[in-house]
């Protein structure tokens, strides 16, 4: 194992850097810029049973040290993801990839996971029960321990791949939801999805986003993410993937010290398309300064 490598649910990855779902498409926009095989893996665009256009525009707004988005899970649907996106992905990425799955009913999640389970390149299924930008489903599963557990239990029945529950910070007690997912059989927890927010245009006095509200991401949410990772990783015995505003090698180390096994990088990819390779390159130097020999020791 190299200095940077970590093991995530039995799969060794070269480094803990994972572009987060919704900020990396299916990889090939970034593959035009750099060899994306330098990544640990990446979580591809949130996939649903049926195709979705998502919300009306504007879907994006500036925020202090971050951004709001209300894309609303635009994706071509699982069948087209398998027939059109994954073959293209395979050409540019040669490692196990993380499939990100969303749904509006238990059946949706199950159908989508059943199909993605048959794809050899899919290494993990990341179950998004925390999208704040869709009505019905999405976050409503992730804000109640019983509903969250029900999704995870149902998905576990149709796949042998590791199942990761992606949690929302928009809850009163994230630990109880993480524990419910662990008890339901989740192999790992990833957190945090975006924080629900909104902005208003002072001139029009109307919300900036067509969806009124959106999810806050970027450095603004980093301390919230570190806190959630700390709380959850101390309460469950399955691995935790930390995300939320990670922008530098130091942020990655902080997440790992909070208890994360690996780290997802989201909004940073959008403002700097080279954010992830820069972080990977900077990690050894940042580790040297802190006397860290191998990331797996953290």
């Amino acid at each position: 194992m190299g200095r940077l490598s970590v093991t995530l649910c039995g799969i060794e990855i070269d480094n803990p850097i994972i572009p987060a779902s919704g900020t990396f498409g299916f990889g090939y926009e970034f593959a035009e810029l750099y060899d994306i095989n330098c990544l640990g893996t990446f979580s591809f665009k949130g996939t649903t049973k049926d195709p979705r256009f998502g919300n009306e525009t504007p879907r994006i707004a500036e925020a202090p040290a971050g951004m709001l988005n209300a894309v609303g899970l635009q994706n071509p649907g699982v069948d087209k993801v398998i027939s059109e996106e994954l073959p293209k992905l395979k050409e540019v990425f040669h490692k196990p990839v993380m499939a990100n799955v969303s749904g509006f009913s238990i059946d949706d999640y199950v159908t989508t996971c059943e199909k993605l389970d048959k794809e050899p390149q899919v290494g993990w299924l990341e179950i998004n029960i925390s999208c704040p930008n869709v009505h019905g489903g999405g976050m409503s599963f992730g804000t109640d321990p019983n509903a969250a557990a029900e999704v995870i239990r149902a998905v576990k029945k149709v796949t042998t791949k590791p199942v990761i529950a992606k949690l929302s910070p928009n809850v009163t007690d994230i630990v109880s939801i993480a524990k419910a997912c662990e008890e339901a059989g989740a192999d790992a927890i990833s957190l945090i999805n975006t924080l629900l927010g909104m902005r208003i245009n002072l001139k029009t006095r109307k919300p900036l986003l067509a969806n009124t509200t959106g999810g806050l991401s970027g450095p603004a949410v980093f301390p919230v993410a570190v806190r959630c990772v700390w709380q959850v990783s101390h309460a469950v015995s399955i691995p935790v993937i930390g995300m939320g505003g990670v922008s530098s090698a130091e942020d990655v180390l902080e997440m790992l010290m909070a208890g994360a096994t690996a780290v997802e990088v989201g909004a940073a990819n959008l403002v700097d398309p080279y954010a992830c390779p820069k972080i990977i390159e900077a990690l050894p130097g940042a580790m040297d300064k802190l006397g860290i020999q191998n990331l797996s020791e953290l």
Binding site: E29, T57, R59, P273
Partner: peptide
Amino acid sequence: FGACMGCS
């Protein structure tokens, strides 16, 4: 550059 689907 096509990654976020923000401007569809």
